[in-house]
Simulated scan of single mutants.
Amino acid sequence: MGEDAERAGDGERSEGDAGRAGPETADAGSNPSSVPGPDVDADVPADVRKYDRFQKMERAEYDRVNQFLRDRTYVTAREWAIARLCADFRTETGVEMTKIGKNLPRLVPFMTDTYTPQAVNQARASFEEKVNKAGATFLYGAMCGFFTAEQLDDMMYEVTEVAKFLLEVEGVDLAVEDELEAEDRISKVMRDVREASAEVRGEEVKCPECGHVHDPK
């Protein structure tokens, strides 16, 4: 299953169908035939030529990237890539969706098709929806008392490692000190969430560090 075969977030159209600028949806800026080839720099914006977020994935194939993400997250490779591009190509007036779609194969090595602005927006919206649902699921799990404090710490370590890996693939240089500080802050926030939710439920909470038992009553 490649980029063309993968279903979009709503499950109605294949990614290739949603992404390609066909006769019905194509405009002058999104027709694949009007996009310069990889070795032609004419009419390519300077910021696109200089963009190197995904240079570590120069030889990566879409299927392998997609499978890696599917095994560890809810998002697809196209949603990850386009979400990153939407964050990087945002101006005061909004996201440059036409530029992203027209230059997608240049910007992301494992993406082989150009996208219409509508397809870029669809992938962006799908990413946002999945993050919201995943966040609600995780927060409920943390608040309902299903996990112990130790289990939450272990879970946060695992998910943080995945998130850090994706950032590093995108070219973000994470210093060890910054990583440790971020992990400590996240762990503290999750302990506060668990204590606050236990108080709402009227349950006792034992601090995993000092052993103090907080009685909300």
Rank of each mutant, 00 (worst) to 15 (best):
17 D>F: 14
180 L>T: 15
38 P>W: 13
156 M>E: 11
166 L>Q: 07
93 T>E: 12
177 E>R: 06
96 E>I: 09
5 A>R: 13
3 E>T: 07
53 R>F: 04
172 V>M: 08
202 G>R: 01
68 F>L: 13
132 N>M: 10
124 R>Q: 13
181 E>T: 14
146 F>V: 15
162 V>G: 00
111 M>K: 01
156 M>H: 05
177 E>M: 09
133 K>F: 04
171 G>R: 01
29 G>N: 11
41 D>H: 11
199 E>L: 09
181 E>F: 15
141 G>C: 06
147 F>T: 06
100 I>F: 08
178 D>Y: 01
202 G>P: 01
94 G>H: 01
34 S>T: 14
94 G>E: 05
171 G>A: 09
70 R>W: 13
20 R>N: 10
13 R>G: 05
93 T>W: 12
44 V>S: 01
28 A>K: 15
89 F>V: 02
172 V>Y: 04
152 L>Y: 01
164 K>V: 15
131 V>I: 15
199 E>D: 11
196 A>W: 00
202 G>E: 00
112 T>R: 12
154 D>Y: 03
5 A>E: 03
177 E>A: 11
171 G>S: 01
191 R>V: 01
93 T>K: 13
73 T>R: 15
201 R>A: 04
41 D>P: 09
26 A>L: 08
34 S>D: 12
211 G>T: 02
6 E>H: 06
11 G>P: 04
19 G>F: 03
157 Y>K: 14
217 K>E: 14
35 V>P: 08
9 G>I: 02
170 E>G: 12
84 R>G: 05
201 R>D: 00
154 D>M: 10
